[in-house]
Design a protein around this nucleic acid. Structure first.
Ligand SMILES: [Mn+2]
Ligand SMILES: [Mn+2]
Ligand SMILES: [Mn+2]
Ligand SMILES: [Mn+2]
Lengths: 219, 219
DNA sequence: TTACATTGTTAGATTAGTCTAACAAAATTG
DNA sequence: CAATTTTGTTAGACTAATCTAACAATGTAA
């Protein structure tokens, strides 16, 4: 069984993996906020336990076993976040830190019960998909708002970043998942976008913000 | 901040303390399932951090700070158990192991929210008192059923032992907190007691069982 | 293509939490 | 009270997870 520390590494490895499933030691060190030698020794341990493939001076890749394990921890994380929001009345900006701890609890029934109580949700409060019990993730291809054009109508569906600060920024403008946005205009100079939505006739969103908003286009 | 390991030691120290608040190293070793040298080194650490008083060859005692910390961990444990039973549909025999992990989560709001959702309960599913936010415990003086006499009517109020096996034994006889028991007779030879209660006209309970049942006498 | 920067590895140290073996103090008991 | 048992301590070792310093490999760019 993976230790709490190993579980956090697996999660980071899963999230950092590129198209070829590769992760560099330096990226992982940055993400985990530890030194490169620490990562170096940890990847050797993870390899020894069959969670990843490692060859000197090459980027590492998760094994299928490691990928599944990571997905199941992410499942616990996202189920927890959804439970905190839907059943315990937390705001979407408050749940990540708590889930970061709860995800390490070993009690399958606890998470199954959450899942059941919520009617088997498929996304978390930030729009990210919840892996199933087999660790499979159904990836949905949303568009970033920054790629949309004036005149389009879109629905806010997910976020590429869920930092507390960003979530509080969205709260301040009553932007939540499901909000229908009409794109009034797009400024050529700085790529900022002006949108309207219920109770907000005109809000300007910077490119920085638009890149973090994932939307689906309404016909 | 106490580590998860230290928190478990503090809890054990709190629970093992005698009338003089004292705990022996050997008791603690047994309870924690580690060797005596391990306890010896850990009590030195706990002392260094101000959680307990230690002098060579003497039993240890928690400091007020240590006692409060322990009570607050026990508070999280018992709130969790009650939440699992009342809000998530778990049986009282299933919750201890989960609470043993959840009690270490550092997220005051999480436990405050549980408390609120349950209407600020004062006892856990096994009848043990839930310490308040200041770590104060209101002790209730129940009687063990083994001390009761034939003819008395009592209400099952708490347990001195909450092992899964014992809880399953009670489940098997539909004995739950609040059940009103009429003591029909007491066998002088082995101190077993025959009781009747709703849907059970005559159940014999061994002394071993009676010692673990805490009751209050009905006038 | 050599120099420089970046990335990764090795060596060695540190801390937390655990162990066993050996010994010492305290408690019990004949 | 002396012998024995129980309890507690010390010494020394080990593993997990981390660090810094030094060095080596790889990648980039003049
Ligand atoms: Mn999260
Ligand atoms: Mn985590
Ligand atoms: Mn318990
Ligand atoms: Mn615990």
């Amino acid at each position: 069984m993976a230790s709490q520390t190993e579980e956090n590494y697996l999660k980071s490895l899963f999230n950092l993996a590129n198209e070829n499933n590769e992760v560099n030691i330096s990226e992982l060190a940055t993400q985990m906020q530890v030194s490169m030698p620490t990562v170096n020794s940890m990847v050797k341990t993870l390899q020894k336990n069959g969670w990843l493939n490692y060859e000197k001076y090459k980027p590492v890749t998760l094994t299928p076993k490691g990928k599944k394990e990571a997905a199941l921890i992410i499942r616990k994380h996202r189920l927890t976040e959804m439970f905190l929001v839907n059943k315990m009345g937390f705001g979407w900006e408050e749940v990540h830190e708590i889930a970061e701890q709860v995800e390490h609890i070993h009690a399958p029934k606890f998470f199954e019960r959450m899942d059941e109580m919520m009617g088997f949700p498929t996304i978390d409060p930030h729009g990210s998909p919840i892996p199933d019990k087999q660790g499979r993730i159904q990836e949905i291809n949303y568009l970033t708002l920054s790629k949309c054009k004036a005149g389009q109508t879109v629905i806010l569906a997910a976020l590429t970043n869920s930092s507390t600060e960003f979530l509080e920024f969205l709260n301040g403008r009553n932007l939540s998942l499901g909000t229908e946005l009409k794109i009034l205009s797009k400024e050529a100079y700085d790529q900022s976008i002006v949108v309207s939505y219920p109770n907000h006739s005109s809000e300007t969103l910077s490119e920085k913000v638009c890149e973090k908003l994932l939307v689906k286009v309404v016909e």
